[in-house]
Amino acid sequence: MLSIDRSIVDAIVAHARRDHPDEACGVVAGPVGSDQPTRHIPMDNAARSMTFYEFDSMEQLRVWREMDDRDEEPIVIYHSHTATEAYPSRTDVSFAGEPGAHYLLVSTREPDTEEIRSFRIVDGVVTEEPVRILDAGVDPHAVQSYMFGQSPATVDYECSGR
């Protein structure tokens, strides 16, 4: 199960909405071994595409080094699908290189609601997991960047995996 603070989910959704119809991507870092996502880092989609995302390799090096210096690891790696469901594509699976991370997908294909789902992807095997939204679990000052954008009126948290 992924447990994540509501303010971080709101920031991820705002990032996805802002970049729509291009795919948005980023990371939520947290202390090593904690499984707690605390620091939201929106990344550039170097592909700037509606159907593909790719971290800029130099930005990634900087962010991964910063996490290392702070004894953090990528707890969540997220991206949006802008015209299809929030389920990992074959491309997502072949690239998934962080076996310890929660792969969070946001679909922005509907203008008024977001579909948010989380997956583990290990050795090519996709396992869906429930998403638990925490309302006050994380110090809001720990959120590095809070995106400007609308908050969703209704959010559809589909957790069909058991």
């Binding site: 795919e23 991507c25 990344m43 593909f52 790719e54 802008t82």
Partner: peptide, 21 residues
């Protein structure tokens, strides 16, 4: 030397996306 997993993916097949890029 630093090795990192490339972080990439998306809704579309990679070959098609690369061709478009």
């Amino acid at each position: 030397v630093t090795i990192l997993p490339a972080v990439a993916g998306g809704a579309f097949g990679f070959a098609a996306a690369a061709a478009i890029a």
